[in-house]
């Protein structure tokens, strides 16, 4: 399977990466190289095989339903590029 330029733009948007017109061509080539590398997997017989969900045979642990930390709002927002008090600031989303 190979992707066309429209698909490259669609994937870039899904991945939320801006792609310039001059980049679409070589991105298409690179993505198709990877897709053709993985193409042989289509021929493997996987009938009746369960997809792996956990590499180690383990049950996901549950922790006690209790408050274990908190009151660290200063730490949480400390690295934000833009903040006001304990809020992250983003461009206007709701009119």
């Amino acid at each position: 399977m190979s992707v066309d330029q429209g698909t490259v733009r669609r994937i870039a948007h899904l991945a939320r990466v801006a792609v310039g017109d001059d980049e679409v061509g070589h991105l298409q080539g690179e993505l198709n190289a990877i897709l053709s590398f993985v193409e042989a997997l289509g021929a493997v017989n996987v009938e009746g095989v369960e997809p792996m969900t956990s590499v180690a045979p383990m049950k996901l642990r549950m922790r006690t339903d209790a408050v274990t930390d908190g009151f660290i709002a200063d730490d949480v927002v400390a690295n934000a590029p833009e903040r006001e008090d304990h809020f992250f600031v983003v461009p206007k989303v709701v009119e």
Binding site: V3, V8, A15, L27, V38, V46, V49, P51
Partner: peptide
């Protein structure tokens, strides 16, 4: 960028079973 785009593609509607689920089955093998 290449890898997150490939990732977004193999997880996208219509390709998830053909790529991602198949790869996880092969991982079991």
């Amino acid at each position: 960028r290449r890898r997150i785009m490939i990732g977004a593609y193999v997880l996208s509607a219509g390709y998830y079973d053909a790529y991602y689920v198949r790869a996880q089955k092969i991982r079991t093998l």
